[in-house]
Amino acid sequence: MTSLLHRVKSKMAIFAHRKARGMLDGEYGSVFRGRSLDFDDLRAYVPGDEVRDIDWKASARHGSPLIKRYVAVRRQTVLLIADTGRNMAAESRDGETKKDIAVMALGVVGYLAHRHGDVVGLVCGDANSTRSLPAKAGEAHLERLLREVDSAAGLDSGPSRIEDQLEHVARTVKGRFLLFVVADEFAASPGTEQLLRRLRAQHEILWLTVRDADLAGTGSAPRESFNVADSSVLLGHVAGSAVVAAAYAKAAEEREAGRQAMFRRTGITQGHVSGSSTVMTELFALLERHRRAG
């Protein structure tokens, strides 16, 4: 059986060259701003590093910018939060299963945390149950987390309800963590916004939305599909109707606008992906936006 983490690292190598992966490392390191004053070593500057960390004297001697690195005060904790309800068994906009994209995104962030010496935990589930795995270090542990998400999300899972997983975190997690949430295009609500405000007051939060597939029949030959949420059939000739397509697009835009407004009001940095090929680019942009917002 192929390791999911190995698959993630292989895709990282395909979708981003070495310099880009170094930039992603730098952006990840900027999320936790607390650090000691114990100098460790110097490394080459990459876009996204803090200018204040440049060692100007060493840079002048070297001929190019060098960044001062410090020994971390303590190991940080990253908590991956994933929707594993049956919505994640549906197709994404690029045709991949949403679950596979979620595993890729969670794997990249988990691997970045591992490279920085941080520990990683997981909270995942659906409307029926929530499962929590404690934060630990090591690639073997990260592989276990990814396999948990991969095996939990399927057509026989309960309905997606990311609010339940967030509520579990609010009730049980003490201390300040980095929360990395991966979910589908859920609808915003006053209750969800209140919960996010509560979490944001305690934690750093990054949110990644996996895009829904286009309405069946749009942009291609009409075909029959079904809604994974309730197994209702979506008739290809109905989905191909211009009137139905327009109404669907309007509803999707309104739901997106509501979600975006909620994230702005709660101060949560968010992004979205349509397929595995966009995960690396969007995660870099997400981390950069979070740094700038801070």
Rank of each mutant, 00 (worst) to 15 (best):
A20C: 13
F177E: 03
Q76M: 07
T192H: 12
A170L: 08
G236R: 01
I67D: 01
E91D: 12
R74M: 10
P222K: 03
A16D: 12
L283A: 04
F180Y: 14
A285P: 06
K68T: 11
D38T: 13
A152T: 07
L208M: 15
G29L: 04
P134I: 10
L179H: 01
Q270C: 08
P47E: 13
L166W: 01
R291V: 09
R61H: 13
H114Q: 12
V71C: 12
R69D: 12
S225I: 06
E193Y: 05
L37K: 14
A135G: 02
E185C: 08
A170E: 12
S132W: 02
Y28W: 07
Y45C: 11
L145F: 02
V233E: 12
V46R: 02
K136D: 09
T192F: 07
P134D: 14
A90V: 01
V243K: 12
K98P: 01
D41S: 09
L208C: 11
Q260V: 14
H141K: 08
K174F: 15
S30H: 07
G117F: 04
A89D: 01
R33A: 11
V243F: 08
Y111M: 06
H6S: 14
P159H: 13
D55F: 04
R75D: 15
G34P: 04
A293F: 06
S92H: 01
I268T: 02
A293V: 06
S274V: 08
R43D: 11
E256C: 10
F180M: 08
G26V: 04
V51E: 11
L287M: 13
T218D: 14
P190F: 03
E254Q: 10
G85P: 00
S232L: 09
V123L: 03
G258M: 05
D150L: 05
G121M: 01
H141Y: 09
S189R: 14
A13P: 05
M23W: 05
M262W: 06
D150V: 07
G267L: 06
A252F: 04
L5S: 00
S277L: 10
V73N: 09
T130C: 02
E167A: 15
Y45T: 12
G217T: 02
R147N: 13
A213E: 15
G85V: 00
S151N: 13
V120Y: 00
V238C: 15
G271Q: 02
A242I: 11
R291T: 03
G138H: 09
R18K: 11
E253V: 12
H203R: 13
A251Y: 09
L215R: 07
L287D: 00
K136R: 13
H290I: 04
R198Q: 15
G175F: 06
A170Y: 09
G95Q: 08
T278P: 03
R198Y: 12
E254G: 11
G26S: 14
